[in-house]
Design a binder for these strands. Structure first.
Lengths: 382, 382
DNA sequence: GCAAGTTAGTTGCAATGCGAAACTAAGTCA
DNA sequence: TGACTTAGTTTCGCATTGCAACTAACTTGC
């Protein structure tokens, strides 16, 4: 007999829904093959999901199955209805709220920013509430909210420590739940970005990858195994003070030549000030490197050190793929040769080359990560 | 109806057998709870396994269930018959074959060593064949053979590169299969040790741990997720040339201050020769450190560097636990203070302390790892 | 030493979920 | 238009499971 649809979905129904969510429109045939069940079973499972409106049938397509194209009955791809439910992601920085609305598949729909009037937790919660209200005004059905920030977060709600915001032990999740009738999840910003990559981004088909962010800080996230984000101290960037032994700068905690002292935007600019005797921006420094040897030396040294860091991650965490992202990635893009040299100098010559993907990332991407976390928590489940 | 036993075991039968193998004698009640099935189902599954002799019932025990002890019907623990089938593990070093016989649960039964007459692959295969013959002579039913060595091994058979033996592209698995009628698996020695820890050792209940060996070389293995050993280049020790920036020695590949140049037995002894102007053994050097400042400086520097290495593994691979083992662990045991300083200096103060286990390891342990690999391959399966 | 209580293990029953295979549907090609 | 190809459906029967009533094996108290 045909089973009814009960939420949350369980068993095969759940597996079918998730596979469609993560891997785009799929025909029953394809789904049956992917999930290792018979076509008959898949028909039975998909039936109720279609009836309940959770899945929809898209236009028929002829599969050009290796050989002559389009013969036989066309496939009937099953897909999610993306125009109905939406998710909000908010990334909190020291002075701005970056907000996005996404579909269930974490595709960007709208993005807006708001200057933060105050860093006082309840004021921030008020402002987030206002923005969510605004975003749902246009008749959009918002299903969940994800919030991310730089810092350690416990139980998807409690901000243990957020140095840039000056928070410790702030239960932002509770503040938000008091203000709106919406499932809310709060998480570390880098981990949110990892989740977005894991489910909807460049690492969709990899279950073992690392993500490094450079910019104001150095972030690190690792995925190994079935969608599990690892680490006993989630949100504590254990890579920040990784000893690179290059450059000789001193970081905020007194380490000489650590990643923070070499790679953060602040570190780059303070070196530039010393060497060039003028204040420049990050972009100006990179541009200047084409003509000014002192500037070139600074950025090349940093890119080389970044390569060493990437090689160390590859050597010790053994990922299939490494994603490099963050505001500071231009450093890597503009000095690819020094970066690659840093990698190969610290990598066994017999090792397989690193699958390194460098992504430019906007603030909307960070906010999208927060939305992806909400989707993972409340839809993908488990 | 009651299902028969067909090998290899599948589904619940397989799950029950593996759980008993890995987690000792367990009653039906406990097994049902662990596997998440009803007691009735477990009775039905266990029946045929008992009938086929794969499982046996042990003496009844009264469970002292939190409160007054021993009330109600006692449990009937199911266990494996360990006195029937045996496994052989062989570790090949430059001059010796280290061989063990173990039970299905990788418990040591016998150990013997043989000097290698020649490093020629077919001669080594001959000698292994002889030893296995000898070990099975005493009426023991040997079910499988595991062989491990330092080097990269492909498809559990083909030795791509084994520098210490001078081998490259030697299909040792094929040579052995030609000589005996026994399932054979060949693997890297460090990975074998990791497998032994994973299934039968200190990491039995952890699914995310790292193992570091020090001695003649520096070995590294990482487990993350359901029993999966990670890494695109299995058996290639990506940690050997990890840059520690300590000590100033130069390694075989020209790196200054890398792990090899600081931590291997050879590196320690060559420093000792320089500083003390005499040849000492590893043990003598450690003993000398109590009285001789120069010797103390050498071993403390090395222990500090080892701590830095351990901290880096913890920071980048994010394991729950790190096992340190190998012939050279005495360095760590004798200089625990310097080791811990090296760790804490390179670890975020807010991070949870590393669960570090230091194990002394005999050559029999290495061979046991090989046996464990055979058991994993041919019994645990998948 | 026997009844009452407690926990482990077994069995009968009904429901479920699945695969196999025959069947229908929807297209192409000559 | 009919032969062919591939996707999706339906019917049938079977294996597996949980549930709940059952038996088995023990302790404790009288």
């Amino acid at each position: 007999m045909q089973q009814d649809v009960r939420l949350p979905l369980e068993g095969l129904q759940h597996a079918v829904a998730i596979d469609v969510l993560l891997h785009g429109p799929l025909s029953r045939k394809q789904l049956a093959a992917r999930l290792g069940v018979s076509p008959g079973t898949l028909t039975r499972v998909a039936g109720p999901l279609l009836e309940a409106g959770l899945l929809v049938e898209r236009a028929l397509v002829q599969r050009s199955s290796s050989g002559r194209p389009g013969i036989g009955r066309p496939e009937e791809p099953l897909d999610l209805e993306l125009g109905r439910d939406f998710y909000v992601g908010v990334k909190i920085t020291e002075n701005t709220l970056h907000c996005v609305v996404t579909t269930l598949r974490a595709q960007l729909v709208t993005e807006i920013s708001r200057s933060l009037a105050s860093l006082e937790p309840s004021a921030v919660a008020d402002q987030i509430t206002d923005v969510v209200g605004e975003l749902s005004e246009e008749g959009r059905n918002i299903r969940a909210l994800g919030v991310s920030l730089g810092g350690q977060v416990s139980r998807n709600s409690l901000v243990l420590e957020a140095p840039l915001l000056g928070w410790s032990d702030v239960d932002l999740g509770a503040l938000l739940k008091d203000r709106m009738d919406l499932p809310v999840v709060v998480d570390n910003d880098v981990l949110s970005l990892v989740r977005a990559e894991r489910w909807f981004g460049a690492a969709k088909d990899s279950d073992h990858f690392a993500l490094i962010t450079i910019g104001a800080g150095i972030g690190y996230g690792l995925v190994a195994g079935s969608g599990i984000l690892e680490g006993p101290d989630p949100g504590l960037s254990t890579i920040t003070h990784f000893p690179l032994g290059i450059g000789g700068g001193v970081c905020s905690q007194g380490h000489t030549g650590c990643a923070e002292s070499l790679l953060t935007t602040k570190a780059l600019l303070s070196r530039a000030r010393l060497a060039l005797d003028e204040n420049v921006t990050h972009d100006e420094l990179l541009a200047l490197a084409d003509t000014n040897p002192a500037a070139a030396s600074i950025v090349e040294t940093a890119a080389y050190g970044l390569g060493k860091l990437i090689a160390s991650v590859a050597n010790l965490a053994l990922p299939e793929k490494i994603i490099l992202t963050g505001d500071g990635v231009d450093l890597a893009l503009a000095n690819r040769e020094a970066l690659d040299r840093g990698i190969s100098d610290h990598r066994n010559r017999r090792a397989t080359p690193i699958d390194l993907e460098i992504q430019t990332v906007s603030f909307a991407e960070w906010a999208r990560g927060a939305a992806a976390t909400a989707i993972e928590t409340f839809v993908v489940g488990r």
